[in-house]
Nucleic acid binder design. Structure first.
Lengths: 127, 127
DNA sequence: ATACTTAGTAACAAAAAGGATAGTATGAAA
DNA sequence: TTTCATACTATCCTTTTTGTTACTAAGTAT
């Protein structure tokens, strides 16, 4: 979405906006990878086998533009760039969790995503 | 998605499955329209200005195949077909609600979707 | 006989999303 | 001097999604 909602895009409903920001093939994965730790470009690339650098770059740029992800580039050679969730970015984790839980119910199997890391769950934030 | 998860599609994570089932441009809207009432094809078409009959048909067929929506056709002329949420379909409403709420926060404005109808909210189901 | 209604389908087109592969910049290490 | 590492960018291409418009079936009302 790249923050277009705040510029010119108009949504019928906020769900559309949310899906624009966190939807698609890769963004949920990226956000999930970053939920508990900073990761470098190469680290992200490896944790999501199959994504091309072009795609990863594009998704990260959009997430950054939407304020969910922080990009920190260090002036070194070879380059080092670290990605992490912003505070705002962390607010989507419960939403992702809700999506994950429903998906588990739908698929009738366990969540592949590693839940052992310290993350708020739908239950822990729901009251 | 049309239920492919249960056939051959494999997801990295359940979030992907969920987004396949309820994501896209129209499905959230359709599900929302059906949250409290049965609607005919023409009624759905009108409540979502802009959708073409082709798109609406396609989305409804997929939702039906995924078990979220029930289609009831009456043998009359002119034809009458009513669409409603199945019990399983109703289980996505809290998820939609979570997406809606986050979207509102993101957009900083009120939900366009009419919340005055009797629907479970994220709060009411969360404990 | 003709028009009207509803729930679609058919055929075609455009746009968006996603993918594959090669190339760039830069300094340090060998 | 050549190689290596990292974080990309550039091109080109395929697939998926979404849109547009016109058309059909079939009984009822006029």
């Amino acid at each position: 979405m790249v923050n277009e909602a705040k510029n010119n895009k108009h949504y019928h409903c906020p769900v559309e906006a949310t899906l624009d920001v966190i939807g698609g093939k890769w963004k949920p994965l990226i956000l999930w990878q970053l939920r508990a730790e900073k990761l470098r470009f190469s680290g992200l690339q490896q944790s999501m086998q199959g994504i091309s650098p072009k795609m990863l770059t594009k998704q990260l740029r959009e997430l950054e533009a939407d304020g969910l992800v922080l990009r920190e580039a260090y002036p070194e050679i070879p380059p080092r760039v670290e990605y992490s969730l912003t505070e705002f970015g962390k607010t989507v984790l419960p939403v992702l969790d809700a999506l994950c839980e429903w998906g588990n119910g739908y698929l009738g199997r366990e969540c592949v995503l590693d839940k052992n890391k310290d993350v708020k769950t739908a239950d822990s934030i729901s009251q």
